[in-house]
Computed example of a mutant assay.
Amino acid sequence: MKRQGGFTLIELVVVIVILGILAVTAAPKFLNLQSDARASSLQGLKGAMSGASGIVYGKAAIDGKETSEKTVAIDGIDTVYGYPKATSAGIGAAVVGLDEDWSSVVSGSTLVVGFKQDPKPTLASKITETNCYVTYSEATTLSSGVSVIVTATKC
Rank of each mutant, 00 (worst) to 15 (best):
P28D: 07
A23L: 13
L31K: 11
L22A: 14
V14D: 01
A61E: 11
I21M: 14
L142I: 14
I10W: 00
A60N: 05
G44V: 12
S53G: 09
K126F: 04
G6T: 01
G51A: 09
A89D: 13
G76K: 11
T128H: 02
G5V: 11
M1I: 12
P121S: 06
L22V: 15
G114L: 03
G108V: 09
S107R: 05
G44A: 13
A61P: 02
S53R: 04
I77K: 01
D36Q: 12
V17I: 15
W102C: 01
Q4M: 11
V72L: 08
V15D: 00
Y136M: 06
T25G: 08
G76M: 10
Y136C: 05
V15W: 02
T135N: 03
M49C: 07
T140E: 14
V72G: 09
M49V: 08
K29S: 12
D101A: 12
K65I: 07
I77H: 04
A48I: 03
T79V: 10
Y133P: 04
T128F: 01
D78P: 00
T153E: 12
G97V: 07
L12K: 05
I18S: 05
S137I: 10
Y136S: 02
A124G: 05
Q34K: 15
G54E: 12
T87L: 07
E129F: 00
G5F: 06
L22P: 10
A124H: 04
E138Y: 02
D63R: 13
L33S: 14
S50A: 15
